[in-house]
Design a protein around this nucleic acid. Structure first.
Lengths: 371, 371
DNA sequence: AGCGTTGCCGAAACCGGTTTCGGAGCCAAT
DNA sequence: ATTGGCTCCGAAACCGGTTTCGGCAACGCT
């Protein structure tokens, strides 16, 4: 009916519905409405319902910052990424972030990320974020054997969730993938294929997963009834180069392995390099099994047999656990694990050469190179 | 009824220095102190100095959320990642994020990230973040030729910065890498090496970079004095598989190229696959030049010649540009570009076979396969 | 001396919520 | 009829800042 062109003068930003607006529309005071929405017991059941319905209808969304100034809660998850020198988190980060942010926003929480190198700076950044109330709690990826972040936050009384388990478990909530189970299964799988000398290239023991995977490997060997040769175990390989080096070292032993398990896919890729350098065919002369499920594995020839972890799922679980932690649940009740999924490729199989064969081959090759 | 538990949780958090504390210590009112810190002209120079010094000494840090409720500014950058089906942003994300967050926190800003798939959901997420004032502005990675995010935010009057240029430039600030310059240089480089038939496998035209790189390639061909064969141009290759397919199509032409430029490294990796399938040696029979600088390129044999972009730097520039935009600078004055850096590998070089040679080789091979 | 400026700061309102306190109304028990 | 307890909600303080307004003193000017 109206010829109202003044609509054009409407401010660009749509008017937000404030608590007061809601209260006015309901004929209540904002205090009452606030308590109704937050489920205080001194508000009549019927009123609570009425308020909730109206809030929904009017599209009311509380301003987290405004709530925060009184409650101290921002509804924000903190995620401080480590600038990892070995780039080990690269391929997963995208999926992981998606898991975290999606789970967070499902609860109407947000995620703030920061970056710091492990050590001093990391603690500074965490401290700053806490002091300025930029995050209500933290997700700590890449758990260290002795994790200074966890200790710091625990002392500060700030909620956090580890991606990875830790020995000093008091006050720690976590989510983790059972890497030890994967290492165990890998050893047993190789044993079933007929391998008797199996090497193990672990990651760095500064990370908490290394100890677990070491145990898992030993467990698998024991279950398979194979004797463990300590000289076939290496650790500290977090990169392709390091993996290649470790694998080469194993292959040059007097009794080399016919198969090598890598605790980290990146290192497993190095295993291919070492095999190539030694003139061995991966999957035939040398079996390789990795862990992580990085995409590069599928592009290798033969494709890498590995245990893939669901990074997106992990991120999602961590986010929901952290939210529950912040809401007050005890850390001890917030511990979850999941299993990695075996993703078979062509990099493992029955040994086509014996250990002695390989040793002879490599000896011949080395001699040849020296000419 | 249980005893109120909140008293026990009390003492852990260290006491923050509030504005009032500062004011008390200075013998001023909090209003005055606030204005002093924010550089209002009605506060004496001397007083401002005194206040600033004291604030520093007492370690005062304003609570961003508290400021926000009055000013509407959270000092927060928004970054909504697209769940890209082609995984194209994967390898860069880590560096990119580091650049953004580091630059942001240098100004004492924080970064909140969210995830959404392009389209409807993306706009929902942006809208929600804006309405709930979770971010003061946005960094928009992966600019589309027609970018709905930019249009939405522009209409809403919300500051944003594009990673990539866009034709509909009004109100758009951006940072971009000059992909067209790289494509041009690639063409000229190959021409100098002696190539005369050069193929070009572009990315998807839904992204704004594709048009630019197309121009760059044509420009390079013209400058090199080579005639352009439209049949040697393909587009839409964002993945390794798609790159392989496009490259294979080019190689099966009557007069195949002796070199192919890829607008995207992932596609370039597919070029290796196509070459291998065709029995051609990369770098000798077929030259390949990529763009992006993904780490996998360095692991290919021969290593990929490509133009590497500094993702960390890009993130950092985008963050600072966005902050300036939020602070009021005009979008038109906030446009920056940088160049990609040529990273020579072994995948290009003087052609060791002519186009006719290759055609014959492939014909023979195809015939052979048909037997 | 009178008067208008100007510089500088205090007082208080304000932002959008949360939380404490107290009181009105109702009912049952004294 | 008074008292006491309960339920339910209004009023107002509060959180930690920002911003408006007004007033006091010192200054310059006629």
């Amino acid at each position: 009916m109206s010829v109202a062109p003044e609509k054009t003068a409407r401010p660009v930003r749509p008017v937000r519905v404030r608590l007061t607006d809601l209260a006015d529309a309901l004929g209540l005071t904002k205090g009452t409405v606030s308590r109704a929405l937050n489920g205080y017991p001194d508000i009549a059941e019927a009123t609570q319902l009425r308020v909730r319905r109206k809030a929904e209808a009017m599209g009311y969304r509380p301003l987290a910052q405004a709530q925060a100034i009184r409650t101290g809660r921002t509804c924000t998850l903190g995620l401080v990424l480590q600038t990892d020198t070995d780039g080990s988190q690269r391929p997963f980060l995208s999926d992981f972030l998606e898991g975290v942010t999606r789970a967070a926003s499902a609860e109407n929480w947000t995620t703030t990320v920061a970056t710091a190198e492990p050590g001093e700076e990391m603690e500074m950044v965490l401290g700053r974020l806490v002091e300025e109330r930029k995050a209500d709690g933290f997700i700590l990826p890449r758990t260290h054997t002795v994790d200074r972040r966890a200790i710091l936050l625990r002392d500060l009384g700030v909620p956090f969730v580890l991606f990875g388990r830790v020995a000093d478990a008091a006050g720690c909530a976590w989510f983790d993938i059972l890497g030890e189970a994967a290492m165990r299964d890998a050893a047993m799988r190789l044993a079933t294929q007929g391998h008797r000398r199996i090497g193990f290239v672990n990651g760095a023991f500064t990370y908490s997963f290394a100890g677990l995977r070491d145990q898992g490997f030993r467990d698998g060997m024991a279950r398979a009834g194979l004797t463990l040769d300590e000289s076939l175990i290496r650790s500290g390989a977090m990169s392709r180069e390091a993996g290649a080096e470790a694998a080469a070292a194993l292959l040059h032993r007097p009794e080399p392995p016919t198969a090598i398990i890598f605790a980290v896919d990146r290192a497993a890729l190095g295993g291919y390099d070492a095999a190539e350098a030694a003139g061995l065919r991966v999957g035939q002369d040398l079996s390789i099994i990795g862990y992580d499920g990085i995409p590069e594995g599928r592009w290798m020839r033969p494709t890498l047999t590995t245990f893939s972890v669901d990074s997106r799922g992990a991120g999602a679980r961590l986010a929901t656990l952290l939210i529950r932690r912040i809401r007050g649940e005890a850390a001890e009740t917030l511990r979850e694990t999941a299993e990695a999924r075996l993703q078979t490729g062509g990099s493992d199989g029955p040994p086509q050469r014996t250990s002695a064969d390989i040793a002879a081959h490599i000896a011949a090759q080395t001699e040849h190179e020296e000419c």
